[in-house]
Amino acid sequence: MDEKSIRDELRMWILDRAGAEADRLSGDDQPILDEGLLSSLDIVEFILFIESVREEEVDIEAIEPEVFDCIDTLIEAFFADAPSASEPQG
């Protein structure tokens, strides 16, 4: 999955979980937790979703809570290797 698709997937999951309209998360630098879109209790479910997308487990002891700030920080922490949409897929 390319990076753009992952960003879309993450945004859709968060909005769906929060039962929120799209404008609550229009930018990838918009805060997720401060906006009250997700709480501590949603994070477990969110991590399992992230693991299913990247097909690899998340090492919780190796991450800081700040990675859940916004979609940009999530991409950086969990999907740094995802190809950008313009790169040829092989």
Binding site: L33, S39, S40, I43, V44, I47, D59, I60, P65
Partner: peptide, 10 residues
């Protein structure tokens, strides 16, 4: 099995 919980202050 590791737990996947993070607790944010409230």
């Amino acid at each position: 099995y590791p737990e996947k919980k993070l607790v944010f202050p409230r």
